[in-house]
Simulated assay, not measured.
Amino acid sequence: MPYTLSSFTRTASLMLMAGVLCLQPAQAALVKIGVFSPEGFATGMQRWQPSADYLGQQIPGHRFQVLPYQNLGELEDDARRGKFDFVLTHPASFVQLEQQTGLIRLLTRRQRDGARQYAHAAVVIFTRADNRSIQEPADLARTPFVTTTAQDYSSWQLVRLEMERLGQDLEHALSGIKFAGHSEAVLDAVMRGEYPAGAMAARDFDRFLNQGRISLPAVKILEASETPGFPFRYTGRLYPQWPLGVLPDTPVELRQAVEQSLLTLPEGHAALEAGHYAGWQPADNYHAVRPLLSKSLSRHVVERQLNVANLWLEQHRQSLLITLVLTLLVWLGVRLFSPPQRPSRS
């Protein structure tokens, strides 16, 4: 068949179109990062989307999207449903998801306070200096207590860990717990004598000292500790900072690329400024957080299984009833209309 001009033109056009398509970048794969954001959706986006954009710049062919959750339960439910590739949440939440979904710890976030950097969290449990009835955490038994919020890792969650470490049963140790919402309210409630003891994040307590809101002679830190490399006084012991976790179904290559990109995030980068953090380091050991969750985790799993079972029964109640009725009718029909058995002849 002769190779005509028209066939040549058509072939050239197809080759040109193929070349253009090859030059066009493939559609970027969407990577979702679930983030616990107690401050709300808008603040979560402002803090963490710049870090996600940095990852998109470092890892070709991928677009990273932050999904902030103010409700911790909703974040954990969606993580169990596999709606994310990565999850950034506080350690108490992480160890639950670790056991329930196989979440893998990838990195630990480093915090900053001015020029100081640290990779641990700690709580301050304190009273007024003139309170002689409370000298150590064990004296908190049957004592009214004030703290920030139930989901605050660096406050109430660490109080629970400290009480667990001391062998105290929280359900009977404190006579009443007030969640004041923020550290300023906790400080005012204790210093005015409304509550004999309270707790807040060590960084917040240090900030109030530097601001002159309180002075060390006026307060008493229970089981006070100091550690080189950690810039604040605190109660008890140090615990790991927030981890970045990865769901087990996330490709290993993507996991490694994210890890390497965040470990080499340049100091002073805009993502660090927006997120108010210092950077990342290899994942810490979160074993110290797990003992607190063993009982509550089992109860949570059982309650969730019961809720799923109840929901399934509610959704299929009508079909189950119809099936039961039809089964009974068939059984009665067989019994009524089947011929009687003749006695066997011996």
Rank of each mutant, 00 (worst) to 15 (best):
D53P: 02
L161C: 06
L72H: 00
D85I: 04
Q305D: 14
V219R: 03
L21R: 07
V252P: 02
L209S: 02
Q27F: 10
P248E: 04
Q111M: 07
L30T: 15
P144V: 09
V308F: 05
L21D: 00
V124S: 01
M15F: 12
R203E: 04
A129D: 06
Q168E: 11
Q281N: 08
L174A: 05
L14D: 07
L292Q: 08
I59F: 11
V330R: 01
P339A: 12
W280N: 00
R203Q: 06
P137G: 08
A201I: 02
P340R: 04
D284W: 11
L254R: 10
P282V: 09
R105A: 12
S183M: 10
Y54H: 03
F337I: 03
P339G: 04
S7G: 07
R290S: 13
S294E: 13
E164Y: 03
L161F: 06
L88Q: 05
G212T: 07
P339W: 00
V146Y: 08
S175R: 13
D204N: 06
T227V: 01
S133E: 08
V124M: 04
A29H: 10
Q151V: 10
A29F: 01
G212L: 07
A278V: 08
N285T: 10
R165V: 06
D188K: 15
L107C: 07
R110E: 10
V87A: 11
W331F: 10
A28L: 05
E194N: 08
P228W: 13
V219A: 00
I322L: 13
